Simulated scan of single mutants.
Amino acid sequence: MEVAPRTYRRAVDKDDAKFAVAAANGGIAEVELGTLAQQKAVNQKVKDFGGMMVSDHSKANEEMKALAKSKGITLPTKIDSDEQKVKDNLSSKSGADFDKAYVDNMIEDHKNDIKEFEDATKNLKDPDLKAFAVKTLPTLKMHLEAIQKIHDTMK
């Protein structure tokens, strides 16, 4: 009787797993805040940027979900309490106040994301997670550039 070979998942380094969880949390937040921007923004460019966040980050979230599953990493399914505070704060604003707060948050958030992903491209041990970081980094930089341009046109 032949026995099928067992496949064992190699344990992922805890820092690599931490990156995956943080990336997933940030991605979920980008989608939720982008949806909020599509609903609440008065500036069409801010609405459009929100749409790009929903589209791009939903795609990245799906990739990360599949990757994490293959590595045995459990990802969050909803935003953490810090991101929830940001969402609640933005939800309480309207009009130009919302637009300004959302744009400022996106600039700050993408600067932080870029730093995290740049660190990940250098420090992650898992080749698949590292490849995800390398692949996603240019999109994050493009997002920062886009939101910076919108910020610069707002008065």
Rank of each mutant, 00 (worst) to 15 (best):
D56S: 13
Q38C: 08
M52L: 13
M52Y: 05
F49E: 01
A60D: 08
D56K: 08
Q44F: 10
K40F: 07
S55F: 08
K47G: 01
M52T: 15
A66P: 00
L36F: 03
M64V: 11
E63M: 13
K47T: 10
E63T: 12
A66H: 13
A41W: 02
L67T: 00
Q38G: 14
N43Y: 04
A37Q: 07
K45M: 12
M53G: 04
A60P: 07
E63I: 11
N61H: 06
G50I: 01
L36P: 06
H57Q: 10
F49Q: 06
Q39V: 12
K47Q: 11
M52K: 14
M53E: 13
V54E: 09
G50V: 00
K47W: 00
E62R: 14
Q39A: 13
G51S: 10
Q44P: 14
M64P: 04
E62W: 00
Q39E: 15
Q39F: 02
A66K: 15
S58F: 06
M53Q: 13
H57N: 08
A66F: 02
Q38T: 11
D56Y: 01
V42F: 00
K65V: 11
A41H: 05
G51H: 07
M52Q: 15
K65I: 11
M52G: 02
S55K: 15
K59V: 03
K59A: 12
A60M: 13
K59Y: 07
V46N: 02
A41I: 07
V42D: 05
L36M: 15
M64W: 03
V54P: 09
F49V: 02
Q38A: 06
N61R: 09
D48Y: 03
V42Y: 00
V54I: 10
Q44I: 11
K45S: 14
V54M: 08
A41F: 04
A41Q: 04
A60I: 05
Q38V: 04
K59N: 12
Q39N: 11
A66M: 14
Q44L: 12
K65E: 14
N43D: 15
K59Q: 13
V54N: 07
V46I: 08
F49T: 02
K45T: 11
A41G: 08
H57W: 04
N61S: 13
S58L: 09
L36N: 05
D48V: 07
D48N: 12
K59T: 12
D48C: 00
Q44W: 01
V42N: 09
A66W: 01
H57A: 05
M52H: 09
K40S: 10
K40T: 05
V42W: 00
E63L: 10
M53V: 07
K59I: 03
L67D: 02
H57T: 05
E62P: 03
G51T: 09
G50Q: 06
